[in-house]
């Protein structure tokens, strides 16, 4: 028996969620006295791929084939299903990101394997296989029990973290037979900004309090000095002050960074639904009644146009002192 974990690489590097996935799989496998096999999709060399061994994988299947270039969830599902059979896996781990959302439900239906999406912590496996997950947009947590023989967990990225274990992994190429895809990938348009928002550990976000798109420079400056991604509230995206992909909230994307700095955002319940899983929230607002302060760890009451440049200077000073 083994625990299989889905891992992606891009531009020669294992994605961050991949190391966390192996950590998640290792904990689960230890509970079940099983070993961890990782199936890796995407371009990375053998040294990079074998580094998954340091996190607890004993075997890595590196999936190869042009069929995966079209990002067809059906092709990935067939390949993972073939790896499940080859490795006699009874638990399969995905990150709950775009790839996990595309593939894990298909695999669940294909293998008749119960799926828990958005796991917050490791499963417990004595007295039933149980996993905790967010429900009601973070306003509650549910303990979900998987009642099928095979089980799939899609964990929330940045929930358990990546932790090194001792060990090494054997790497082998894996070329499962997969039907040709009917989906064609025509183009990939790179979004602006260096750090993709869903993966960002630090996020600087701003709202209507900035008064207009021409005032975003201090926000971007703060993000730059922190090494953070930028985000925004819904009204700002709807008014086209900022691109839609920056919109966090109930109808935008939900994120879980270590630090979320909200500037000039009042904190409507729909916005909080997308960010309330952040580990630490800093709110900068000139309205003492802004509901966001109730959800914040640190608050600064005052004019963002005065405060943010001061914060930028303070961060610069701090960064200089760290070098």
């Amino acid at each position: 028996m083994s625990v299989l974990v889905f891992v992606e690489a891009a531009n020669g590097k294992i994605k961050k969620a991949g190391f966390e996935g192996v950590t998640y799989a290792k904990n689960t496998a230890d509970q079940l006295s099983n070993s961890v096999t990782a199936i890796v999709f995407g371009n990375a060399d053998a040294a990079e791929v074998s580094s998954l061994g340091e996190y607890g994988a004993t075997k890595v299947l590196h999936a190869k084939g042009d069929v995966f270039n079209n990002l067809d969830a059906g092709a990935f599902t067939s390949a993972v299903a073939a790896a499940v059979e080859k490795e006699n896996a009874d638990v399969i781990i995905f990150p709950f990101d775009n790839s996990g959302k595309a593939i894990a439900p298909r695999l669940s239906a294909k293998l008749k394997a119960g799926l828990v999406s958005g796991a917050l912590s490791y499963p417990t496996t004595s007295g039933g296989f149980k996993v905790k997950k967010n429900v009601f947009s973070g306003k509650a947590i549910a303990e979900v029990e998987i009642t099928t023989a095979k089980k799939i967990i899609a964990f929330t990225p940045n929930s358990v973290g990546a932790h090194k274990a001792s060990g090494s992994a054997s790497v082998e190429d894996f070329a499962p037979s997969v039907n040709a895809s009917k989906i064609k990938l025509l183009e990939v348009k790179k979004q602006e900004g260096d750090i993709p928002l869903p993966e960002a550990e630090l996020v600087v976000s701003a709202g209507r309090g900035m008064k207009g798109p021409e005032n975003w420079a201090p926000v971007e400056e703060l993000a730059k000095v922190l090494g953070a991604a930028t985000a925004c509230s819904r009204p700002v995206a709807d008014a086209h002050w900022r691109p839609h992909h920056e919109h966090v909230g109930q109808t935008g994307i939900a994120i879980r960074p270590n630090l979320y700095i909200a500037i000039g955002i009042s904190g409507a319940i729909q916005h909080l639904a997308g960010v309330n899983q952040s580990k630490v929230i800093v709110v900068i607002n000139n309205d003492a009644e802004a509901p966001f302060f109730k959800a914040a760890d640190y608050g600064v009451l005052g004019d963002a146009f005065q405060i943010v440049p001061k914060l930028v200077e303070a961060v610069k000073k701090f960064k200089a002192s760290q070098n």
Partner: peptide, 19 residues
């Protein structure tokens, strides 16, 4: 294939520290 056994509410925030 799955069932919810029990719900819980997330731990309350300690409260905001004003700077």
């Amino acid at each position: 294939q799955v069932k919810i056994n029990v719900f819980e509410l997330p731990p309350a925030k300690a409260g905001v520290k004003m700077i």
